Simulated scan of single mutants.
Amino acid sequence: MPLQKGKNNCITDIAGVQVGHVTLYEKLNNEETICTGVTAILPHKGNLFTEKVHAASYVINGYGKASGLIQLDELGLLESPIMLTNTFSVGPVMEGTLQFMLAQNKELGESAGTINIVVGECNDSHLNSIRIQAVTPSHAIEAIQKASSGKVEEGAIGAGKGMMCFGYKGGIGTASRVVTAADEKYTVGCLVLTNFGKRDQALFADFPKLEIPTPDGSIMMVIATDAPLYDRQLKRLAKHTTAGLARTGSHIANGSGDIAIAFSTANKHSHQANGHTESITYIRDSHKVMNQLFQAVIESTEEAIISSLQNAETTEGKKGRVVEKAPLNN
């Protein structure tokens, strides 16, 4: 039985989570078009370095250039916004996010050591003149500053401006689900950056068969929840995005970067704590609510992918290439 959707059916249904976009679109000449952007996901409204959240990642297929996942999985903590952009802009987005966090935390690089910046990417070079490298560090800062907790804008926006999905215009999509345990309700939200798939692979629609010569593509999937989970459990949630992705028809191709990041807003980890021990409350793995959380991840991932298509619009990119909006009802 399908689970209940969240209030706005998006990742910001989890209290405190914010999303911000910066979209770049400019036709420079007949050959070159800037068609890209940056998206920022903030786990809460406070200082992410001093109030870290438990997190984990899962690499389904590793044809990707994400940053920050090694330390994220080693320590199980997220201490920066999760940033999304195009493949060639991981560097400037990391730099801009670092600048933002340095301004917030004067002790970084001094008494507090360093910070781990997390950036995910997909290749938008079919529509975007990616070699121009139009994204700058200031765009990353702007995306963070624009982040809000309202209903998330979807489709060809932010990092999704130049992305494709199943041969149609893709981009940003999001969805959420609510689960119940005893007297407690927990919300799971998913935000995706879609850039994968061929038309004949889609299981949710009978698309006209038209082969567009594009790379295998990628997807970034970000899972947020207010359920009290720690990093090992969050990795289990991240793994279940695979089922939601497969439900849409993805083959998880050889040249595809399919990466999931999951975090919980419960049990924040204080950087400034002095004690040598720490206690947290978390859901028992054997409790039936864990299966509901897995189901919530699967359903919200599947719907977020389809929503990225439903909310995108026909877009013209470099060399006069046009990628159409998918013939799907909202």
Rank of each mutant, 00 (worst) to 15 (best):
C165K: 02
E95Q: 14
A66Y: 07
Q4D: 11
H54K: 13
L75S: 13
E184N: 14
G189Y: 08
K161V: 02
S80W: 03
R236F: 08
T50G: 05
I212A: 04
L48N: 10
H276G: 04
N9G: 06
D285I: 00
S308D: 09
T248Y: 00
K318N: 14
G167C: 07
F294I: 14
G62V: 07
N274D: 13
S307C: 11
G320E: 01
E324Q: 11
A112P: 01
T301N: 08
G167Q: 04
V53D: 06
A238H: 07
Y168A: 06
A227Y: 12
Q133H: 10
Q71M: 12
I172Y: 06
G158C: 11
A182D: 15
A40R: 09
T187H: 11
P92C: 06
T315D: 00
D258A: 04
T214V: 14
K7R: 14
A205W: 04
E110I: 00
V19I: 13
T87A: 11
E313H: 14
V178A: 08
Q71D: 14
N128W: 06
A66G: 14
I11C: 05
T314G: 05
T39P: 10
Y25H: 15
C165L: 03
T248W: 00
S149P: 03
M1K: 13
A224M: 05
V119M: 06
